[in-house]
Design a protein around this nucleic acid. Structure first.
Length: 321
DNA sequence: CTTCGTTCCTGTACGC
DNA sequence: TGCGTACAGGAACGAA
């Protein structure tokens, strides 16, 4: 499934192939993928047709494309097309002649531009993801709405808009560890005030976004911390260690996914590059811990699997789930 | 307000 | 061969 690095690869692909282009027509073969657009298919279509995609922004796993109003040349990004890939979503830039994918949900036909493919497709098997149009609201911190640290991209593409705006539905989401405006001190204070376990906090998108089950386990393993560590016992170096671990594993996955990315497709095939990489803990029940050789164990936790090394990641007193 | 369990959804894997 | 069930999980939602 697409994790944050794959979503960033998708963002870059959309920026290259879709930003700056006008949407000519929209079809929705399966409305379930736009059920979060409360006003329905016709409203969805009406808002998109004629609009131009101004840019492509990401925060955590939310992607959004601020839209210009009709044919005006003055960018006034008050609304955006929001995309979340969920478990199985793909955004593909293709020729309209390409055969339809089995789980094709939404098609946007784009105005011609050189030899660029003229269709953007949303394909989703499990329907956890979706598209919707919403208003943009000011960010809580007044800084640009999303983005990725230039140190991880070579500085060519920040993926930020000049506008400090974020979709209404994503305004409660914290910045992700790759965001240049990520506020470690603020996170630390929130962790200290929470009465919960560390993994649960890492998965809470309002505290820090973009960390899913896989990265939570990998970051905890790298930082040698237990998933049930009470967050109110976290000291500043502990918070730094776990966030640096999360950032590091995501940055390395991004580097891998970015290189295997086929430029004609905006897709999650970069995920194969990531999953081919060795994970140290996630999904490795019974395998030896790469650090100490102890068998990795699997616990059921939050209706999810958690993988950890019982020796490297000792259970704390006062463990909290 | 905080915390935490449930639910959505469908394809795949596996036991019988 | 076919049936039933567990599992994968981001994030909205509601209960306490």
């Amino acid at each position: 499934m697409p994790e944050l690095p794959e979503v960033e690869v998708v963002r870059r692909g959309l920026e290259r192939w879709v930003a700056g282009r006008r949407i000519k027509a929209v079809s929705v073969p399966d409305p379930r993928s736009i059920r979060r657009h409360a006003l329905g298919v016709e409203d969805f279509r009406g808002n998109l047709e004629g609009a131009t995609v101004l840019s492509v922004v990401r925060r955590g796993k939310f992607l959004w494309m601020p839209l210009s109003d009709s044919a005006t040349t003055v960018p006034s990004p008050e609304v955006a097309l929001v995309a979340h890939l969920g478990m199985s979503g793909q955004l593909l830039v293709e020729s309209p002649e390409q055969p339809h994918e089995k789980h094709l949900k939404v098609r946007l036909s784009l105005e011609a531009r050189g030899d660029d493919p003229e269709e953007l497709r949303f394909v989703d098997q499990r329907i956890f993801g979706g598209l919707f149009i919403t208003s943009l609201v000011p960010t809580a911190d007044g800084l640009p709405g999303g983005g990725i640290a230039s140190t991880f991209t070579g500085g060519s593409s920040l993926g930020t808009t000049p506008w400090a705006l974020v979709p209404e539905e994503a305004a409660h989401i914290g910045r992700d560890p790759l965001d240049p405006h990520f506020d470690l001190e603020a996170l630390h204070l929130k962790l200290r005030s929470r009465k919960t376990g560390l993994k649960r906090a890492l998965l809470d998108q309002s505290l820090v976004s973009g960390i899913g089950n896989i990265y939570a386990d990998e970051a905890l393993w790298a930082a040698r911390m237990h998933y049930a560590r009470p967050t109110d016992t976290m000291r500043r170096p502990d918070t730094e260690r776990i966030i640096h671990a999360a950032r590091d594993v995501m940055a390395r996955a991004l580097a891998a996914g970015g290189t295997s990315f086929d430029s004609l497709y905006v897709n999650v095939n970069g995920a194969s590059g990531y999953f081919a990489r060795s994970l140290n803990a996630y999904g490795r029940e019974g395998d030896p811990c790469p650090r100490c050789g102890t068998k990795i164990r699997r616990d059921t936790f939050m209706n999810r699997s958690s993988y950890s090394c019982a020796v490297c990641q000792g259970r704390p007193r006062n463990a909290r789930m």
